[in-house]
C-alpha cells in the first residue's frame, strides 16, 4: 500500500489501524490460549526430536563383499579407495570423505566393515510430504480432465452422454471416498493386476489406484462446477460464436470454456484443497503419504502431539501455497 493510498484510507476509515490492532490481539490471544492449553496437559514436549524425521545424518558403513587382504589404501581429496585382493580376485571400495577402519595388509572376511562415512538422508515425514504432493498433483490434473469432459457430457443433449454423466456424478458424490478407495484398490486393482500377471506385464503399484480414486472423486465435483460455469456464460456468447459459423467444439474451445473456467477458479481452489486433505485416506491402501508417515513415526517415537501438529502444519503449507497459486492465476487471467 502506498503512502497516498494509506492516508486516503485513513481519511475514509479513521479507525482502520485500531481494527488491525484488534485482529492481531485476537490472533495473539488464540495462539496464547493454545500454548497455555498445551502447558496444562500432562505431556513432555520434545520438539528437538522432530527435525530428525525431516532430514537426519546417517552413518553409512562400507563392507567388504569378498575375503582377502587389504592390498592398497589410496587417499585423494579426502576420499579413500580401499582395494581388497585374494587369489585371482580383486575388488575396490570407495569411501567418500570418511574414516577407514582397516590398514594395509589386514586380512578380512566377507562382511567386515572397511570404513564408514556420514550422509544426510531424507526423513520419513519429508518423504510422506513429497508423496502427498505428488499424488495430489497428478489427481488434480486428471480430475480437471475428467471433470471437463463429464461436465460437457452433463449438458449434452445426447441421453447416453448426459445420463452417464449424471450417474457418475451422483454415484461418486454420494458415496464415501474411503469406500471408493477400497473398491479401486481391492476390487478393480486386484482384477487389473491379476490380468497383468497372466500376461506377464509388470503390475501397477497401489499408488496409481489411489491416484485413480482421487481423480475420479474430484472429477465428479469438477464436472458440476464446469457445468455451472458454462451455464453461467450468457447465451449471447454461444449465439455470437455460432452465428459466425463456428462449430459447437470451436465455440466451446475459443469462446465459452475460457470464460467459464476463469469463473470457476475459486470453487476449484476449494475442491483441490479438499483433495490434498482427502489424500490422507490413501494410507489405508499402503501408500505412505504424509498422514500414514506421521502415524508410523508416532508409533515408534511416542511423540504424538508434536508430530500431529507438524503434520497439520505441513498440510497447511501445501494447501495455502495452492490457494495462493490459484489466486495468482485468477488475477493473471483477468481481462485487461
Amino acid at each position: 500500500m502506498g503512502a497516498a493510498a494509506k492516508s486516503a484510507l485513513l481519511k475514509k476509515n479513521p479507525t482502520y489501524f485500531l481494527w488491525v490492532g484488534v485482529f492481531f490481539l485476537i490472533l495473539t490471544l488464540v495462539v496464547g490460549l493454545l500454548y497455555y492449553a498445551t502447558q496444562k496437559i500432562d505431556y513432555v514436549w520434545r520438539w528437538y526430536r522432530i527435525p530428525q524425521y525431516f532430514v537426519f545424518y546417517d552413518d553409512v558403513e562400507i563392507r567388504a563383499e569378498i575375503e582377502g587382504t587389504v592390498k592398497r589404501i589410496t587417499r585423494k581429496n579426502g576420499d579413500a579407495e580401499v582395494t581388497v585382493a585374494d587369489v585371482g580376485e580383486e575388488e575396490s571400495y570407495h569411501v567418500p570423505g570418511g574414516e577407514i577402519r582397516v590398514s594395509e595388509g589386514d586380512f578380512i572376511f566377507s562382511g567386515d566393515v572397511l570404513g564408514s562415512f556420514g550422509k544426510w538422508r531424507v526423513g520419513i515425514l519429508l518423504q510422506g510430504l513429497w508423496l502427498t504432493l505428488k499424488v495430489s498433483f497428478i489427481a488434480i490434473l486428471f480430475g480437471i480432465v475428467i471433470g471437463l469432459f463429464a461436465g460437457l457430457a452433463r449438458i449434452s443433449k445426447n441421453p447416453a452422454l448426459k445420463w452417464s454423466a449424471i450417474s457418475y456424478i451422483e454415484l461418486i458424490r454420494g458415496s464415501p471416498l474411503l469406500v471408493q478407495i477400497f473398491i479401486w484398490y481391492f476390487v478393480l486393482g486386484t482384477l487389473v493386476n491379476t490380468l497383468l500377471r497372466q500376461q506377464g506385464i509388470p503390475l501397477i503399484p497401489p499408488l496409481w489406484f489411489g491416484v485413480a480414486a482421487l481423480a475420479t472423486f474430484t472429477g465428479a465435483y469438477v464436472a458440476e462446477m464446469v457445468r455451472a460455469g458454462i451455464q453461467s456464460i450468457s447465451r449471447g456468447q454461444t449465439e455470437a460464436s455460432r452465428s459466425l459459423g463456428m462449430t459447437y467444439v470451436q465455440s466451446m474451445v475459443h469462446v465459452i470454456l475460457p470464460q467459464a473456467l476463469r469463473r470457476i477458479i475459486p470453487p476449484l481452489a476449494g475442491q483441490f484443497i479438499s483433495l490434498i486433505k482427502d489424500s490422507s485416506l490413501l494410507g489405508i491402501i499402503a501408500i505412505r503419504e504424509l498422514t500414514k508417515a506421521t502415524r508410523e513415526v508416532v508409533t515408534t517415537s511416542l511423540q504424538p502431539f508434536e508430530l500431529w501438529f507438524v503434520c497439520a502444519l505441513l498440510y497447511l503449507v501445501l494447501t495455502f501455497s495452492l490457494s495462493m497459486l490459484l489466486q495468482y492465476v485468477e488475477r493473471r487471467t483477468l481481462y485487461q
Binding site: G236, E239, A240, R242, S243, L244, G245, V255, Q259, R262
Partner: peptide
Amino acid sequence: VRAEVGMVFQNFNLFPH
C-alpha cells in the same frame, strides 16, 4: 451458411476475454 450470413445482436455479444 452462418459463415456467409453476418449477424449483429442487440447486446453486441462481443467476447469479453
